[in-house]
Amino acid sequence: MWSTGTATQQTSQTGRRTVADPFFAGLTRAAATVILLALAGVAAFLCSEAWPAVTAPSDRIAGGDGLVAYLWPLVFGTLLAAALALAISAPLAIGVALFISHFAPRRLALLISYVVDLLAAVPSVVYGLWGIFYLAPKLSHIYSWLADHVGWLPLFAGPASVTGRTILTAGVVLAVMTLPVISALSREVFLQTPRLQEEAALALGATRWEMIRMAVLPQGRSGVVSATMLGLGRALGETMAVALVLSASGLVTFNLISTDNPSTIAANIALQFPEATGIQVNTLVASGLALFVITFVVNFAARGLVARSSKSEGS
């Protein structure tokens, strides 16, 4: 019988089991609560550690001009490096994604997508080593050529860095790092194009490219935007690759190939933190908080964009 109150053959087991169900439900709820608390903790600890830097007199902050003056070049460098990275990687990544989803033969496509997934997981310190030992020297030749021939552009004003450890190199390394992330997600989106729509386009006599423009790209637009934003988030927060590659002097400049380069927030923390004490630590934590806010804004801008475009597609 099924009542919990009456004494039946199952009473002892029943009593134990009716406890087990709420217990398990409580366990999952507790895990969820831990996540909520952890995030509240992240916000609270960062703020409390950053606070002394905000209230400190400006001459005690490194540089001597206060927190804002300290943070501004770093924020600038972070945004510049990430923008360079995306300008390079986004078009290439979309090309790779299209190549895998609609151009390459099936077996090759499977192999390539496996390699791309793998590259998304390669540790950033490895990218950093590659960037400084291999890429920077190669690029320094190109930089000196650029400085000689298109030096009238402020971007390439020079004088070109001999080591090649410039913000542009950092941007290229970040581009290589974000490329697998963006292309992996875009590929998934392109592959989800309804087969019927593709065939409908082809049945109208469209060439492959016309079919892609008619069916695949409109369908995948919001997915590609969010993939790019995810790549942007990764580029903004990337630490070690930039810390290794960039030879920073903390200037605000659009000259991409000279020896004077802005640093990024994340790289600056990694470089300064191990030796930092007292108010320096608080300053670095404050910069970390600024980075957190930037990535947060980027992520939610992406979400908003995706939500809006999917809504407009629906109506």
């Binding site: 969820a32 996540i35 995030l39 960062l46 550690e49 988030g233 927060g237 630490t239 970390g288 990535t295």
Partner: peptide, 30 residues
Amino acid sequence: MAKALTFLVDVMTGIPSIVAGLFAYALFVL
């Protein structure tokens, strides 16, 4: 609660790794 959790897991995915490091540092300093 579930809505908040979904939202915050999204936020967490975007935490830069160095910020995660700073958090753990600040926590253990306590």
